[in-house]
Design a protein around this nucleic acid. Structure first.
Length: 337
DNA sequence: CGGGTTTGACCAGCGC
DNA sequence: GCGCTGGTCAAACCCG
């Protein structure tokens, strides 16, 4: 099995409600903020999901096409619920690419409403489909309901989306889940079509769009919508043996973050990202230790900037204690400290 | 034969 | 209202 090299992946967070036009990534980048700016601009959001890697992602450096594969860059673009586009383009000190994950189930009202609608869509209570049975019928009725909702003058609200860019020659990147393509559309101002995929798992309505950036044909933009309601069918490794956050949907397995700060039920990390990070981690585990050293150094030197952000403090302390690193990093590596 | 892909058609939202 | 665009459907097709 061959997994996507997510070390070359940049992450984006389109608004849950606004349609992200990836044809204008350059515009998004023009609005990029430094990572610290991103942090400060997100004070209203729960940033317990910030990883130490992210703290390392401070130096801003343009991403170029000619970038050698060994030279990695990372982008974080987040569109907060206010629909204000906040972007951050950062580069990792340890050639890493991790994102600050905005709430998969955000506190904001806009996304929360989207989530609740998604729930309603998943478990609709209608009179239409009472006589209908089976998956197909449910899907059809689901569509009917969508149409009905639209007719009721309700703007269709989308699930929270997460998108990321990956340098790859392959359009459809293996991410551990099984997808069924259900559509393809030509993209305006782009010679590359956009493909639409749906998770093949029954009762899981996660979708993803895959398109190639027309500005950088070597870059594939993948946008996930929704959250998996199941564990990745292609992932069998449990969290304790190498997963960053554990498998998607297994909230109980998120007892500790890979970076040392605890991830409890209120910590908002989307399953997609957990999965991505998991693969990412498997590839770059070797680099972690040096990264964490940098994290603590950085956190200490920027303590004032973070103010009394308990989450930052917590991560700093716990990183020192290795946290779940004890699980994911070979013992001898820890001992070498 | 089952599951995935292709592709034309359809629909809704949005801007003019 | 009209046209454009994004998103989805579904029949036909492909493939192992």
């Amino acid at each position: 099995m061959e997994f996507t090299d997510f070390s070359k992946t940049s992450f984006y967070y389109p608004s849950s409600q606004s349609v992200w036009d990836f044809g204008d990534l350059a515009a998004a980048e023009r609005h990029s903020l430094g990572f610290m700016e991103l942090l400060s601009s997100q004070q209203h959001q729960d940033f317990a999901t910030v990883s130490p890697h992210s703290f390392l992602l401070q130096t801003s450096q343009p991403q170029t096409q000619t970038q050698p594969s060994a030279k990695l860059s990372s982008s974080i673009i987040q569109a907060p619920p206010s629909e204000q586009l906040v972007t951050s383009k950062v580069e990792s000190l340890c050639s890493d690419h991790l994102l600050i994950n905005p709430p998969a189930t955000p506190n904001s009202s806009s996304i929360s409403s989207a989530s609740s609608e998604a729930l309603n869509e998943e478990k609709p209570k209608t009179e239409d489909n009472e006589e209908e049975g089976g998956e197909d019928q449910q899907e059809k009725s689901h569509t009917k309901k969508q149409l009905k909702a639209k007719k009721n003058n309700q703007k269709r609200q989308r699930e929270a989306r997460v998108a990321f860019m990956t340098k790859s020659e392959v359009d459809h990147l293996e991410d551990g889940y099984r997808w069924r393509k259900y559509g393809q559309k030509a993209v305006k101002n782009s010679p590359f079509p956009r493909s639409y995929y749906r998770c093949t798992t029954a009762s899981c309505n996660v979708k993803k769009r895959v398109e190639r950036s027309f500005r950088d044909p070597s870059t594939v933009v993948t946008t996930y919508e929704g959250q998996h309601t199941h564990i990745s069918p292609l992932t069998s490794r449990p969290i304790s043996t190498g997963g960053f956050f554990g498998s998607s949907g297994a909230a109980s397995s998120l007892g500790n973050g890979c970076f040392g700060f605890p991830i409890d039920g209120s910590t908002l990390i989307s399953p997609q990202f957990q999965q991505l990070v998991q693969y990412h981690h498997q590839q770059q585990q070797q680099e972690l230790m040096s990264c964490f050293g940098g994290v603590n150094e950085y956190l200490n030197s920027h303590a004032n900037e973070y103010g009394d952000d308990n989450r930052v403090k917590k991560s700093r302390v716990l990183v020192k204690d290795n946290g779940l690193l004890q699980d994911v990093v070979p013992y001898h590596m820890l001992k070498e400290e």
